[in-house]
Write a protein that binds this DNA or RNA. Sequence first.
DNA 1: TTTTATTTATTGATTGATAAATAAATAAAC
DNA 2: GTTTATTTATTTATCAATCAATAAATAAAA
Lengths: 172, 172
Amino acid sequence: MAVREDKRELIIENAVKVFAERGYYKATTGMVAKAAGVTQPYVFHFFQNKEELFKAVIDRAFSRIYDAFSEVNAPADQLIETMGRAFNQIIQTHRDEVLMVMQAHAISEAGIREHVRQLFLTIFESLTLKFEGAGISNAKETAAHFIGTGLLITVAEVLNLPQLICGKDEAE
Amino acid sequence: MAVREDKRELIIENAVKVFAERGYYKATTGMVAKAAGVTQPYVFHFFQNKEELFKAVIDRAFSRIYDAFSEVNAPADQLIETMGRAFNQIIQTHRDEVLMVMQAHAISEAGIREHVRQLFLTIFESLTLKFEGAGISNAKETAAHFIGTGLLITVAEVLNLPQLICGKDEAE
DNA sequence: TTTTATTTATTGATTGATAAATAAATAAAC
DNA sequence: GTTTATTTATTTATCAATCAATAAATAAAA
């Protein structure tokens, strides 16, 4: 039992890397299998198809971001700044996962898109609640704006355009 | 001469639709050809490969956005608002093209990514100059923020999450 | 022995791309 | 001005590769 779960975990963990590096379409199930040290057909023993595998992978990555935000606890006047720092921190420790989640909206599989929609909705509502709880007046606008900044940072990272991130110069 | 150019144009125009609707990877050269009313191999008479075709297509779409921004002329205190309206307008008249450009950063072909990088850089610099010219103090930050909002709107459109766009309710 | 874990072998479909053939248009020659 | 030659436009036929997914076989474990 533990073995079966371990292999599934192993596949997900390695699939994160492959999907993040190559994108959904250029990542093959063969590559995922190789990274996990199993044969390609064996991946389908744990996941019905490539789409289901990706959903499991993105859920994993999403949880990391979600949890990081949940753990943030700061006074109202420093909340947004602290949340921003939390985001910058996960982008440093788990760059691939974050970029994958933030780019997943561009995958044109209906099933995946609906799944990603739910993830973004969850994050948006959770951020809104957090900001409301802190007494921030326009919580929704602030939450949306926060996501917009996250998207900007993602594009800046992916396209190697540090100019887009304020306070971050070309020089690394 | 005119004929040759016309066919090339025809292919680009139809390719815009196909790429925008299906995304780079799910769009096939066969679909593009069919939409343009030519045979699939004939597409390769005008474009070396799928990647080059896409570059031509995204340049077309990008120009539309760039030109729309260039045409904006408003007093400093209304510039950003007016630019925002300009963006919302092209998104209504040429939804597919705008979404395609704003999502192109997620395409994991090195050649395309570099091309897209240039497009984003061009937009960023052009916006910055515009804001500087209007005497806006932190022109760069404002330009970056403007792009971030554009990305947010794109995600909201693609994932059908109007909640993310402030002032835009679920009810259409 | 019976289940569980995992592999080998294979397939069927898709798709970008090439090559060769044909048709149409234009120009040259008579 | 009609025929011939030559280029330009476009198609048919086809390939080679890639990949997700299935089925059947085998090894390991309980």
